[in-house]
Nucleic acid binder design. Structure first.
Lengths: 347, 347
DNA sequence: TTTTAGCACTGGCAAACAATGAGTGCTAAC
DNA sequence: GTTAGCACTCATTGTTTGCCAGTGCTAAAA
């Protein structure tokens, strides 16, 4: 359908447009292309590319700009990942250099490193193992009826929440309840824990406590927190730099999207929906706040400890080859760092 | 210096400019003013006001706009606070309706309520008692050498942090160290705690522990967290609506300012620097990100539990009388709610 | 059949210019 | 002290104009 040279022209248009942000004309292409043909020849090729819907003009006598279809074609067939530079690798390793007390800290740091490296906005999701198990539950009285509930999960995450116990609750009873929770529920996947919490547990607790409801609420609450998908965003403010020239409305919608309460990000980065390493163009996606942006997602795997995801949000005119290469390296380093964490942690 | 009518004109210019955002001309004023004089008369008055530097023109034949000095004069002499409406009061009370487990939750909620009510950006600072005391320190082992350190302060705040203990540390020793901390430091103001931590405590610990340094680091770390000034921001994104028409740079600087790592907010809301209820115009303030904005700050007092602060950041053309009235009511409600919290808490 | 030179054509963009109109300052009369 | 009247100013809007990058097409060359 398309000749070799036409594909070369497409690739070059994308390269030049990415660099300059300006529509690319036939004369510029003639100077930049490795092969030597006249501008008229290139114009013919461009006409063919436009016929296929891969490039468009901004007006009847302007240079050409890659269309969404053009980018899609480029990403599916033409793009060649560029390896990360030594500097970048060093920066990644340095970013992971410190000491971390939770996996979540490492994951959060990922987003920071990645956004620093790219000047785009980065989002990271922790490694999600199919069945995280409950490994412990504590309640620590702090005086004044205040109690801190602490829940530990098999992936090493710790969740805590503060509560006030009604004065009438007997502390001996609470002790017993905690023992029951630990006996009956520890070791089970969180899903099953939640389930049992509705089914068998209340009955058992009633034997030992006069009013287990408050207690169950507390436990359920922390459990929910621990089971919630969490994501971390780095370089939030970077998106101001590449959003359609000062479109405050879009910036606002994007920033709002990144609030955890909104489900937007979890939907966008649903692991079931994206493949191993994938570029999605904003114009192909549903939330129209992403128009003229694009999202690169990459999954990373930490073996038995599950797989997670990192994402980069940037302008559609992104240097894809560079970014894809960078993400490829990055996810390896991240996986290494996490594996390292788990090794020390499991020992 | 200035006649009654001239002050009326100034007030009216501010009112109309606040409403419309447009420069105000003599003809408009003639129609809006309660007194009946010709536009020429008003022009004379305007000339006098301009002479005093209270109003300016945007160009030689435009209407007038209040200058910074004009606003200052208005705020110092002319403004009449407008009482909060029943709706607003109801909204505040409803916002404080839920159950809170920490004062910080109430303070954070303050910022949310206030930004919802005003569509501006609100910032809240918790009540700061001169000497918060340490009331308890716990360390909860969670398995896998993970330990959660928990610190409780006299103002009811609880701070926690996760740590990994080196395997060689003896748990019996840690127990002892915790007992020492509780014996020696509980009851003291945080400042003194920090001081003693440097001075006497290490010597005492050395008697009971082989290597107390790690332990001291942990405690110091949580202590620092507990002593840190925290502020809460509500309606961050609102500022996109009133910043100089789509000045993305300024938006970015403002949002960056609100990151806790930056000291900017703590500097802006330094209780020592502002009076009871105060309006500061952006052009009078140092961080130039605040140009063409203004900051209203109001202190609130919870008796012996200290005083805190709430602030509103909005455009210079704010309906000041309304906002001042609203803040006055709000701080009372907030103080009530906090007093209520402490009452239940102390009992 | 493919490539190239040549040329007329298109549409965005910026500069130059005019018309409009809101609002002013000033003067002289009330 | 107040007002009517008037000339003046300047942002804004619309129009015209020239410029130019870049195009599509045609006919000749390879």
């Amino acid at each position: 359908m398309l000749t070799k040279r036409q594909l070369l022209v497409l690739k070059e248009i994308i390269r030049l447009f990415t660099e300059s942000g300006q529509p690319v004309g036939s004369k510029t292409l003639m100077e930049e292309l490795p092969i030597h043909v006249s501008s008229a020849t290139i114009r013919n090729d461009m006409a063919a590319l436009e016929e296929q819907g891969l490039i468009t003009k901004t007006h009847s006598s302007s240079g050409r700009v890659p269309s969404t279809r053009g980018y899609r074609y480029y990403l599916d067939n033409l793009v060649e990942p560029a390896a990360a530079t030594p500097n970048e690798i060093a920066a990644i390793q340095q970013g992971f250099g410190g000491h971390f007390y939770k996996i979540d800290e490492i994951v959060a740091q990922s987003a920071r490193i990645l956004s620093n490296l790219t000047s785009y906005t980065a989002i990271s999701l922790g490694p999600e193992v199919a069945n995280i198990r409950l490994t412990g539950f504590r309640m620590v009285p702090l005086g004044n009826h205040q109690v801190m509930a602490i829940l530990v999960t098999s992936n090493g995450n710790v969740e805590n929440q503060l509560f006030t116990l009604p004065p009438e609750v007997d502390s001996g009873e609470v002790e017993k309840a905690i023992r029951i929770i630990n006996d009956q529920l520890v070791g089970l996947p969180l899903g099953q824990v939640a389930q049992k919490l509705q089914a068998d547990v209340p009955a058992v607790l009633f034997k030992y406590m006069t009013s287990p409801n408050g207690f169950l609420d507390i436990f359920g609450n922390v459990l929910q927190k621990a089971a919630a998908e969490r994501f971390y965003v780095g370089g939030r403010l970077n998106l101001m730099d590449y959003v359609e020239d000062g479109d405050v409305g879009q910036i606002k919608r994007l920033l709002a999207m990144m609030e955890p309460e909104q489900g937007a990000i979890n939907q966008l980065l649903n692991p079931a929906m994206v493949s191993d390493l994938q570029v999605r163009l904003g114009s192909e996606l549903t939330p129209d706040a992403l128009a003229n942006l694009s999202v690169i997602t990459a999954k990373y795997s930490v073996g038995e400890h599950g797989t997670g995801m990192i994402a980069l949000i940037g302008p559609t005119q992104m240097p894809y080859s560079k970014m894809i290469g960078l993400l490829t390296t990055f996810r390896e380093e991240l996986a290494k760092r996490l594996t390292n964490y788990y090794t020390h942690f499991d020992q």
